[in-house]
Design a binder for these strands. Structure first.
Length: 140
DNA sequence: CGCATTTGACCTGCGC
DNA sequence: GCGCAGGTCAAATGCG
């Protein structure tokens, strides 16, 4: 990364525009654990999916956890590539993906997959602030 | 030194 | 059966 350093919190004055809510039909994948080689239907744990729509200029929204980017692919509906992040915690297989809207470059959709099971490293105050200004969509 | 990031290649699933 | 799409992993590099 070479764009913004450190945490890229949202703008304190950036309110959410509830106009872009068409991402409800976004990703259709449900569970994709270890799809590499040998894999059998073992765990059928329903992974909760949380979609956060925020207004930010940077894709890197620091929610307080540590994320490691493991891939970047372009989407058909978007001319911008989607970034895939994964939690770097032990036992924390939480996945997160960030996607930008082609219509609005300032709108960023962050989708969280899974639940964290460990304390946050960052200031929770920041996270709370983000939640306060971001819209939360839950499918479960 | 460690960790995080980057790009490419590879694999799987599904469609036709 | 083959092709396409999407998604993921691996290795390498750079920076702090």
């Amino acid at each position: 990364m070479e764009v913004n350093p450190a945490a890229a919190s949202l703008n304190g004055d950036g309110n959410i525009n509830s106009e872009n809510k068409s991402f409800t039909n976004n990703i259709g994948s449900e569970n994709g654990e270890k799809m590499g080689k040998i894999k059998k239907g073992e765990k059928k744990v329903r992974k909760p999916r949380y979609a956060f729509q925020t207004r930010s200029q940077v894709d890197i929204l620091d929610d307080g956890y540590r994320w490691r980017k493991y891939g970047q692919k372009a989407v058909k509906n978007n001319k911008f590539p989607r970034s895939y992040y994964r939690c770097t915690h032990q036992g924390c297989n939480v996945k997160k993906q960030v996607q930008r809207l082609t219509k609005d470059e300032g709108v960023v959709v962050t989708t969280y997959e899974g639940m964290h099971s460990h304390p946050i490293e960052r200031s929770t105050d920041n996270f709370e602030h983000i939640l306060n200004q971001m819209q939360i969509y839950t499918s479960y």
